[in-house]
């Protein structure tokens, strides 16, 4: 990492100017829990590090029935936030399953999403929560639905000069139901073999706005849209739950890798979706 230079802008406009000027030479450093690993393992030698810890993007607040979480809010601050517990408790569960206390004290939600890992717990929960991403650059701001944000493993729609500013999450209502499940080789500090996040509203016993997000079973976090459609407008029962869980497993094409086989991932997707829908 010799010859790396470091800047710590105090505002977002300066960050944008620097990214615009430096292009691919620039690497954004927030919590450092992924980037610094790559640097320590000599996989990455950035020419310029732009530190985001001082540019004021760590706010967590409620505005217009939405929860707004700044890109550099730490996982710990999200877990502790009363606003997040009230308005997006699913995200609290997902963030709690990432890393260890020391990692969660440093790691940011923006980093979890922008690294675009198919198994990013925070991103999977945000996908189930129908999150919009606010992106900023010297050209202005734009908003992208998170389901359209990922384009492949480690790849997003972000242009070279763009920065994720914040996440806009529709606030939970009294009728919101949610569930989070993750399977890994141990409970802490583990990349999920399969992660499932479910979010829906239940009105008069009927499921509505069902979103089932799956992690580590595709090149990006994905929505099991066929399984969700099966549940829409219906009352949950054992037969419907089994059918939806099987549909979710059928609509994914996971791969064999170092952590698990494709076969196991399909079995566990079925199992975890069924467990969440059964309220287990």
């Amino acid at each position: 990492m010799e010859n790396t230079d470091f800047i710590a802008p105090n505002d977002v406009a300066t960050v944008c100017n620097q990214i615009d000027r430096l292009g691919e030479k620039a690497h954004l450093l927030a919590g450092g829990t992924d980037l610094m690993v790559a640097i320590n393992l000599r996989r990455l030698r950035p020419e310029k590090l732009i530190y985001l810890g001082q540019c004021g993007l760590d706010r967590i607040e409620v505005a217009n029935q939405s929860l707004v979480i700044g890109a550099t809010a730490t996982l710990k601050s999200i877990i502790q936030s009363e606003a997040v517990k009230r308005n997006a408790p699913l995200l609290v569960d997902a963030c709690q399953s990432i890393g260890s206390p020391a990692i969660r004290n440093a790691a940011t939600l923006g980093g979890n999403v922008c690294n675009a890992s198919p198994s990013a717990d925070g991103a999977i929960a945000l996908l189930a929560l129908d999150t919009n991403v606010t992106i900023v650059s010297t050209r202005g701001e734009r908003s992208v639905a998170l389901k359209a944000f990922f384009t492949g493993p480690g790849k997003t729609v972000l242009e070279k000069d763009e920065l994720v500013k914040e996440f806009i999450i529709p606030a939970a209502t009294a009728n919101s139901k949610f569930g989070w499940a993750k399977i890994g080789q141990r409970k802490a500090e583990i990349i999920g073999i399969v992660c499932v996040a479910v979010n829906m509203t239940v009105e008069g016993g009927k499921c509505q706005n069902v979103r089932i997000a799956l992690g580590a079973v595709a090149p990006t976090p994905i929505l099991a849209t066929k399984a969700a459609a099966l549940l829409e407008g219906k009352v949950l029962d054992a037969q419907l739950i089994a059918q939806a869980a099987q549909t979710a497993a059928d609509e994914i094409s996971p791969i064999d890798d170092i952590r698990a086989s494709a076969w196991y991932r399909k079995q566990m997707t079925n199992e975890l979706v069924a467990r969440i829908l059964s309220g287990e």
């Binding site: 710590a8 450092g32 610094m36 690993v37 710990k76 020391a102 004290n105 440093a106």
Partner: peptide
Amino acid sequence: KSVSSCLTLAVEMD
């Protein structure tokens, strides 16, 4: 707050 000092740059610590 506890952090991993190996994942933290000294320049961040000003």
